[in-house]
Amino acid sequence: MPVEFDVRQHVLVPKHEILSKEKAREILKRYKISPHQLPIIRSSDPVVKAIGAKPDDILRITRNSPTAGRAIMYRYVIEE
């Protein structure tokens, strides 16, 4: 695999963004949850590495959806 391969360029990898701390707090408040109640993603995940997210970050993922067209979800980055 070439060194410069970027998973984010692959068609099957949806858009991942790191949320700012305020934005993350807002999301947790909106759903009245602790970060551990979010779906998780490992810090070793290629896409997490690619965007430089660290454990305790919350990612916003924008996906294409067969029902809604576009769907947004959030994932909590955990160690390893």
């Binding site: 949850i33 029902t67 769907a71």
Partner: peptide, 19 residues
């Protein structure tokens, strides 16, 4: 939202379109 028994989110909107 769709949640499991410990209140963790499984889907942020039911079926992604809420229908």
């Amino acid at each position: 939202t769709v949640r499991d028994d410990r209140g963790a989110v499984v889907q942020f909107v039911y079926g992604e379109d809420g229908v």
